[in-house]
Design a protein around this nucleic acid. Structure first.
Length: 601
RNA sequence: GGGGACGUAGCUCAAUUGGUUAGAGUACCGGACUGUCGAUCCGGUGGUUGCGGGUUCGAUUCCCGUCGUCCUCGCCA
């Protein structure tokens, strides 16, 4: 084997030449991004991952290899070439300040075509627009562009920082199976038929949950994995059928141990990966506190405008809507939009009203605070001292806009919580360059499923109840809390975890309450339950969504913008055209008969 | 599974109330040009208006169905 560099191979990248390389003879490799012909003088922009360098091809240049100029005349966009040339400083008035290499240009001595390109289906340079369908179909072309390259490079830096941090904090990177067992609760599984076991299927993991807990039983103490997870559910801008989590688990810990280490890890990753300083510490909210103040379990802390309970004041008023809601067991809450009075016309408020009624509220009560009192739909019910009391209760001042919803608590929180976000957005309070994290703890353990007519896990079946000694889950079920926590930033749920149950009797009791028979427990989780019989340590952990974190940090629209090869909303890979039909031979070997009608081909 | 938006030249878009030969920019091809950097100038190629059906004298336009993309509700323990 030769170790010698071939003559066409690059000595530098397209992003690194500057005045320090003056007069050097170098070789660059890259794609033709643009070409500008001036008769006997041609400019080429040569692009690689590192940047763009201007190549000058002068038909009268000394020392240029014969035929080079004719070669260059035939070049087109996206052709791959090797250019040997001499680095030449540009005149001061010809410097391109938009490029790192803008102070120089490369005077070509020889150009070799390494690969010819057809006219691409869309223009590859950054300024050209192309619809997302086409960009996904020709993803390798979109990958040549800066936005995706930047996202992938920063994503890699972030993940590397996370790995380094966890390695230094005694976590072990452990791989868990991709071919595993289907679980009955939770999201729909992707199934993989077994050839060797007729009629049986593996499932792709929705997360490594059970395996990471088994790592704790296995005495590994601290586990982590940058883990691919699979869920066969309908997609959104922030969901893909396969996605990546920073998954970790720790033994002999309580909530604060997990939260502290994850918070430090996250802050480190944001700094190293994206250069973003995230202020610490992150507030830690009890679930009900978050619901009361923000109307949701993933508060956006970039601005205030918290929900204020006005139920007591509402009782005193003659406003039938308020009184009526209270009389039927409902509540009244309001938000105070600082300085927003003049920013919302009557029409603007009508739009807000339509917004909340679309969320189930019956209407929107409002008032503008003036120097003399209140103006607006509820003003006549809150004249004089009553009005002053209301304004003071909400912390309002002249120029503020007060917005109220009266209804059952659930409706109020949904409507007013979402309204808070909408108004905050309209007032420019949700700056994408500001990052405010928080924790929400002690989620309800169960939630009622109307459709199935039974209780189900609100978080996951392994989350411990706050009270270890609980014996009967059927008493005050809706008030039982679990030691589950969410990691939230700017209104996005970025991570979720819990302290787990590690005692088999308690785990069995939880399953029993949810109507999962001992036989089902054995069939689905037997190996986990068995493991606890041999000494399961107290443990807990969390999983953070890498795709969402990167999307948020870079201010992108959706997670497809930070994934190299994403799928469509219908979970289809437009480039690979996956999934595809199995051949009859494959199907037979896998003991599979499809009931789907295959379109005539 | 439900709702909504979109689908016209390789790409990004336009096309009056349903009316003449479906246009523009860009890309591409050809020509001119030795200092451009989103080069410029001149000329040219390029269309199953996603697909199928219907209404109509006439459909890019209206209706139905279907396919695809995106958003959203359900769903995502």
């Amino acid at each position: 084997m030769t170790t010698k560099r071939s003559p066409w191979q690059r000595t530098h990248t397209c992003g690194e030449l500057d005045l320090a390389h003056k007069d050097q003879e170098v070789v660059l490799n890259g794609w033709i991004e643009n070409h500008r012909h001036h008769g006997q003088l041609v400019f080429l922009d040569l692009r690689d991952r590192y940047g763009v360098t201007q190549i000058v091809v002068d038909s009268e240049a000394n020392g240029m290899v014969a035929g080079t100029f004719e070669t260059v005349r035939r070049l087109g966009a996206e052709d791959v070439v090797s250019v040997r040339g001499k680095v030449r400083p540009r005149d001061a008035d010809k410097v391109n300040k938009n490029r790192s290499t803008g102070a120089i240009e490369l005077l070509a001595l020889q150009v070799i075509v390494l690969s010819e390109a057809d006219t691409p289906p869309f223009e590859v340079h950054d300024k050209a627009e192309a619809n997302e369908e086409l960009r996904m179909q020709y993803r390798y072309l979109d990958l040549r562009r800066r936005p995706l390259q930047e996202a992938l490079m920063k994503r890699a830096r972030f993940v590397t920082a996370i790995r380094n941090f966890l390695q230094q904090n005694r976590f072990i990177d452990i791989e868990t199976p991709i071919l595993t067992k289907s679980t009955p609760e939770g999201a729909r599984d992707y199934l993989v038929p077994s050839r060797v076991h007729p009629g049986k299927f593996f499932a792709l993991p929705q997360s490594p949950q059970i395996f990471k807990q088994l790592c704790m039983v296995g005495g590994l103490d601290r586990y982590y994995q940058i883990a691919r997870c699979f869920r066969d559910e309908d997609l959104r801008a922030d969901r893909q059928p396969e996605f990546t989590q920073i998954d970790l688990e720790m033994s002999f810990v309580e909530e604060h141990d997990v939260l502290d280490v994850v918070e430090a890890m996250f802050v480190h990753g944001m700094k190293e990966g994206f250069g973003i300083d995230v202020p610490q510490p992150f507030p830690r909210f009890d679930y009900f506190e978050a619901m009361d103040k923000y109307g949701c379990d993933k508060p956006d802390l970039r601005f205030g405008m918290t929900l204020v309970d006005c139920t007591e004041l509402a009782k005193k008023s003659d406003f039938k809507v308020f009184a009526g809601a209270v009389a039927t067991g409902g509540i009244v809450k309001g938000i105070c939009a600082e300085g927003a009075a003049e920013k919302f016309s009557r029409k603007g408020i009508d739009e807000l009203t339509a917004f909340v009624t679309g969320l189930g509220a019956k209407g929107l009560a409002w008032a503008k605070v003036t120097a003399s009192g209140l103006e607006g739909s509820i003003a006549k019910f809150y004249e004089g001292d009553k009005g002053k009391e209301l304004v003071a209760h909400l912390g309002g001042k002249p120029g503020d806009l007060l917005l109220f919803v009266a209804d059952q608590k659930k409706v109020v929180h949904k409507a007013l919580g979402d309204l808070r976000l909408k108004v905050g957005g309209l007032l420019g309070l949700r700056d994408p360059k500001v990052f405010r994290g928080c924790w929400v703890l002690n989620f309800p353990m169960f939630e009622w499923n109307d459709e199935k007519g039974r209780w189900q896990f609100a978080h996951n079946p392994f989350s411990a109840p706050v009270n270890w000694d609980i014996t009967d889950f059927s008493v005050d079920t809706d008030r039982i809390r679990s030691r589950a926590y969410d990691f939230v930033m700017n209104g996005w749920e970025l991570g979720s975890g819990s302290i787990r149950i590690h005692r088999p009797a308690l785990q069995a009791k939880v399953f029993e309450f949810l109507g999962i028979s001992p036989e089902q427990q054995r069939a689905n989780f037997g190996f986990l339950l068995d493991s606890y019989k041999f000494g399961g340590p107290p443990h807990g952990g969390i999983a953070l969504g890498v795709d969402r974190i990167v999307t948020l940090a870079l201010g992108r629209e959706g997670i497809r913008d930070v994934i190299a090869f994403p799928k469509t909303a219908a979970a289809f890979d437009l480039m690979a055209e996956a999934p595809s039909y199995g051949t009859p031979e494959q199907m037979a070997e896998l003991h599979i008969l499809s009931t789907a009608k295959k379109p005539e081909s």
